[in-house]
Design a protein around this nucleic acid. Structure first.
Lengths: 204, 204
DNA sequence: GCGGCACTTGACCATTTGGTCAAGAATTTT
DNA sequence: AAAATTCTTGACCAAATGGTCAAGTGCCGC
């Protein structure tokens, strides 16, 4: 019989599980699942290792639960992309929100990036399931705008990829970007550039 | 006194070191330095673990030597970007070469991506040294084209970032891209899109 | 074809790591 | 305030892992 695990009902459970998620986000986003250790997570959470195991089944369970709990937040901006009188602005708003997320949630971006680079074994079903459906739906929306002549024609899927790529690059490759910019804050100058890039791509 | 290590003079040394690099590229690009094990590398190289250690100082040495040996190849396309009568085509050639590299050398792309995500501790000096200088030099070249009215004005550094981001995305996020495209080969359709994106960005 | 040197590895070791467990400390319930 | 329950951890364990070493095996020049 499996030992029952706290699911987050009581005050202590919510707080401790939250602390573990927070620490795990740090550690996993820097080293990936294999590279991270329970000791690191426990130390950063300010708990003992057995105590961490008390709240989660194990290392992998922390990882998968963390990934899943972040997925919704991560996809939210795309979900909100919807029909509009001004599709260029609608898409640029999406771009800006994605860039904001790179600035404000770099660890989450890196966590997903690491998972993707390692072939996404833990979220494969999501990626080729609900995410694919979501992207397809938004691609149809974009296609409609193109057919109506409201934005310039191009491949909607690749358009979405390029938005992901450019915006997430500022989180995932932060060190490189900052090194090359030599101390200048990327997020001072990036928004203007990114907006220009996609405005030119989208304007008919 | 340090044990002398083979440096790659004899036939066997060249072959075995090459086999180890090849295996290490597989393993490190999937799991990062911490996540990879000597056993994995040895197994994929078809060697015993002590034999691997015979050719390299240790796991970290394999990693750093591999990274350094790949750096030149990785930066080569940018080095070749040079003054031209037709700057738009010159830059688009660079974009195409980068996209080709994502298609033909995805493991290398992922290796560097993982290193970057982990804050590039092993190539920090290169990034904030020779790479920064190289990018600065090319940024000045691009700036010149902009001032001469040959390409549209924008921030040259961010332009380079966006080229890196978009092209490498197809290697690093390959699983996601393929899942969303549902079996269609990304590299059938990506070149046209990417060329259009940057042509629109660059055409005055 | 043989002597020397490069190469190879089974056995081994110390450390790290994911995870268990029983017993004790807090907290909540009654 | 006692009982019941939840929470916490020191001590421990088995497996994995980076690395060593002495004893071979085999290649290469002579």
């Amino acid at each position: 019989m499996n030992k029952p695990r706290p699911t987050g009902t009581t005050r202590i459970q919510r707080e401790k599980r939250e602390a573990i998620f927070e620490a795990a986000l740090d550690v996993f986003s820097e080293n990936g699942l294999r590279g991270a250790t329970l000791d690191q997570i426990a130390a950063r959470a300010g708990l003992s290792k057995p105590n961490v195991i008390y709240y989660f089944q194990g290392k992998e369970a922390i990882y998968t639960e963390l990934l899943e709990s972040l997925l919704d937040i991560w996809i939210a901006p795309l979900i909100e992309l919807s029909d509009s009188d001004d599709p260029v602005e609608e898409l640029l708003t999406y771009v800006r929100r994605k860039l904001d997320m790179s600035r404000d949630m770099p660890r989450q971006s890196r966590l997903f990036a690491t998972e993707m680079i390692q072939n996404a074994p833990h979220i494969n079903d999501v990626i080729s399931g609900s995410l694919r459906d979501l992207v397809d739906e938004k691609a149809r929306l974009i296609k409609g705008w193109m057919k109506a002549g409201k934005i310039a024609k191009s491949d909607p899927h690749h358009l979405i990829f390029s938005i992901w790529a450019v915006t997430q690059h500022y989180a995932d490759f932060d060190v490189q970007v900052r090194a090359v910019l030599d101390g200048n804050d990327p997020f001072e100058t990036a928004p203007d550039f990114v907006e220009t890039l996609f405005r030119r791509m989208l304007t008919p």
